[in-house]
Design a protein around this nucleic acid. Structure first.
Lengths: 348, 348
DNA sequence: TTGAAAGCGATACCAA
DNA sequence: TTGGTATCGCTTTCAA
């Protein structure tokens, strides 16, 4: 039926061991022999059985990239960058390619664990978890335990955008400075004279949500400005759209709104337009992420820039072992303010 | 070291065979025995070795979803829908879950083949190829051959958004009616009175590009309107942005521009804004795909709607075998016009 | 209902 | 430089 390594060996009149060596290129093989083997491979149209190979070698070239929402360009860009970095590594076994695959958790911790188990079953070479983590201690523990096991078993674990697991020396973590990001955004608006600022936040139980809010509040407190209304919701457009109604209900005189991320900001903008409000001018909008499409969608948007491409690439490198993590496993990633245009001061 | 099925068997005082049967739930096992086994699994914190299991069973629960560009929400949405459909199937071996993974080809046919090989090595249960195909006969043949082999080996193959492989009865294909889409868009603009229409097309060698252009030209011809300038480029924002300069260079009096997809349309809009042109009004813009964010970005955009979610879901079902393809393997998917607002007639 | 044992297809150690 | 072969961990007949 299917062509096996043994078939190739027979055709090339060598032992299976030799064929394996030719395919993996890890041991010296006489040029003539190698030729013969390769010809046989060609003629028989042989395809290595990755399953068997992984079993025997006790390693695989699967690398899992877990993201919250694959339809969100934020994760798409991160994942894309990671995949590039991983593909370039190019020195795996049998073909020199790692299979970087993206798994969509939909933000559900259960699905996250399920995917981790599946990857654990496959003895994945590495796993990258992208995006903020849950703050629920139960899930945190479950995830930490699973990751620790995988790390023990030789799987490289990389966190990107979520805090490191305390006490775990095995996992590298790219940590976004969300607090500073939140602070920068608020300070910018305060500097323009805004005093009534609404905040459309992310899900209440995510690390990113809390950290960003922390920074925001810190800036307000430092300026002695009272905190405006805050809403919570998922990181999507609908959430931003809904937030606007509630924020204005709680304070009709808002002059600025901070959105949890660019996608939420788009929803906010849509809602503002429906209300006949101009952006900026009537209301200034600010958000996180700095996605490419925001430039066209909301030219007046002020954002905090997360180095998506850079972080994705580094996550990929860490997963490949191409880049060594610092001793404590934590790689800090700064957030920088992007004032793209003319975020306006509040109307008189 | 790692806990194996044998360890579990020993602890539960049964044979490995029995443990396997309990885990897979495919054979009758006495309730008491099953209890004992499950307890042992729990106590030892046993994790099935998917590699070994796949090897022995000659099947895997990996499902590959190949997309051109994971950073493009179009593919993100499609992939997300497919993953949902696949995850719901829930009757695989050992845990009842398929591992749907997304592979980013970057539009490169080489990488597409590489990923296919990798999935072939893993004996993937199914493969979904999303997005238009290349028209280059060499790559077409190579791809077709590879897909045929995989299908023979038991992998289910689903094409989504690209034409079926002629003569291949094994692969199901969701075929978007891009020609009609192109026609609808042009007819809409013509109906408003536009006579000088530019076209920012996709890569010259893709099926989607040609089919959409075909429909466009068909409509123009039927109306006796001469074809305007056309540019070609990748399906991204930069491409749309660059197209504007060239289109106007070739015809300064354009009143409307059709973009190859929504992402390109965003680039077009950005460029138009830079030129101080209003959309619509000075220029009307139309595009394909109908992505959610376009609503906020370009409220005046007229698009052809491809049922992204629906197609993704059906692709997933076909991959799972939950939905049976028609006899000829082709599932037609209609394109419908979405006039979201006030696409304007040309200025007098 | 359960057990024994023969593979599944490659890898890698030990010899030659 | 090459060959023989035990092993990887699980699935699946075939018997009991």
């Amino acid at each position: 039926m299917t062509v096996t390594l043994a078939d190739v060996a027979a055709r090339a009149r060598v032992s299976p061991a030799t064929v394996s060596r030719v395919l993996n290129g890890n041991y010296p093989v006489a040029a003539a022999t190698r030729e013969r083997v390769l010809r046989a491979v060609e003629e028989l149209d042989y395809v290595l059985n990755g399953t068997a190979s992984s079993l025997a070698a006790a390693t695989s070239d699967l690398v899992g990239v877990l993201v919250h929402d694959i339809a969100d360009p934020f994760f798409g860009i991160m994942a894309s960058a990671a995949q590039h970095a991983i593909g370039e590594g190019g020195s795996g076994r049998a073909g020199g390619e790692k299979l970087a695959v993206v798994c969509n958790t939909g933000g559900s911790p259960e699905r996250e664990l399920t995917y981790l188990t599946l990857l654990q079953r496959q003895r994945a070479a590495a796993v990258i978890l992208m995006g903020g983590g849950l703050e629920d201690p139960v899930h945190l523990d479950a995830t930490a335990a699973k990751l620790a096991r995988m790390a023990e078993a030789g799987t490289r674990v990389v966190l990107c955008g979520r805090p490191p697991v305390p006490g775990d020396a095995h996992t590298a973590a790219l940590v976004f400075d969300n607090r500073t990001g939140g602070r920068l955004l608020a300070e910018h608006l305060l500097g323009l004279g805004h005093r009534r600022i609404g905040y459309a936040a992310g899900p209440a139980d995510r690390t990113t949500t809390r950290h960003r809010l922390d920074g925001h509040r810190q800036a307000l407190a430092a300026a002695g400005v009272p905190e405006g209304p805050t809403t919570h919701g998922p990181y999507d457009r609908v959430s931003g759209h809904a937030a606007v109604a509630e924020l204005f209900a709680r304070d009709p005189d808002l002059t600025a709104i901070v959105a949890a991320n660019d996608t939420v900001a788009l929803g906010v903008c849509a809602a503002l337009r429906e209300r006949g409000l101009t952006i900026p001018g009537d209301v200034s909008v600010a958000g996180f992420d700095d996605l490419p499409f925001s430039v066209d969608a909301v030219p007046a948007l002020t954002t905090v820039h997360l180095p998506l491409h850079g972080s994705g690439t580094r996550a990929g490198r860490l997963a490949m072992g191409t880049e060594e993590p610092p001793a404590d496993g934590t790689v800090p990633v700064p957030c920088t303010l992007v004032v793209r245009d003319s975020t306006a001061p509040p109307r008189a």
